[in-house]
Simulated assay, not measured.
Amino acid sequence: MIKELQLQQQPVGYRKRFLVRQGQRLLSIETGDISYFFTDERFSFFRTHSNQKFLVDYTLDELSDNLDPQQFFRISRSVKVTHQAVEQIQPYFGNRLSLVLHPVFDKEAIVSREKVSDFKKWMGK
């Protein structure tokens, strides 16, 4: 029982970096350099603050378990953002929110209806 309590009190170890391929070389990218994660055609990618796009070997569900929820928020099934990536928040029909991300996201970044309240709380922290 003591060991179980100790395991519960230990801080969760979130990912600090990702090893990604760029051509023939491998790069280590810090999570602090990442603006957002997204899926496209069943593949997961992230875009850095300097607008570099990298393929990752994880689904967004797996990333949700391995990324600090204080730093990353999943706004929909296909997008997970950081505070720094959100440039503007605009009302969107159906009680949803539309985000303008930086660097520019090629598709619409819409906060799903179920997540709007949690997103507002997260952005306010």
Rank of each mutant, 00 (worst) to 15 (best):
V56D: 06
K80I: 13
F38D: 04
T59C: 01
N95H: 15
I2Q: 13
D68L: 06
L55D: 04
P103N: 00
Q90P: 11
E87C: 03
V12D: 00
Q24H: 11
I29V: 15
L99P: 05
V86W: 05
R77W: 02
F93Y: 13
R74F: 01
Q6F: 06
V104A: 14
V86H: 01
D65A: 11
H49N: 08
F38T: 00
Q90K: 15
R25G: 07
G124V: 10
T48L: 01
Q84G: 07
D61N: 04
Q70H: 15
L7E: 13
D65L: 07
E108I: 09
L60S: 08
L99S: 05
S78Q: 09
F73S: 08
L55W: 04
R42N: 10
F46S: 02
V111I: 04
S98F: 13
Y36D: 03
T39G: 08
F45D: 01
L67F: 05
K121G: 14
Y36S: 00
V100K: 08
M1P: 11
D118F: 12
N95P: 11
P103S: 02
D61E: 06
K121W: 12
W122V: 10
N51G: 00
A109E: 07
E4A: 01
F73P: 06
P69D: 13
F93E: 14
F45C: 00
R17S: 14
Y92C: 12
K107F: 10
L63H: 12
F43R: 02
M123P: 05
E114Y: 06
D68M: 05
R74W: 03
V56Q: 10
P91M: 15
H49A: 00
Q88N: 09
L99C: 10
E114W: 01
F105K: 05
R77G: 10
K3Y: 04
I75K: 03
Y92K: 05
K80L: 14
E41Y: 01
V86A: 02
G32A: 11
L99E: 02
V116S: 10
Q70F: 12
D106E: 15
Q22W: 03
S112D: 09
D61Q: 01
V100T: 03
S50T: 10
I89V: 15
Q24R: 14
M123Y: 08
F38A: 02
N95S: 14
R21Y: 00
S64N: 11
R42P: 01
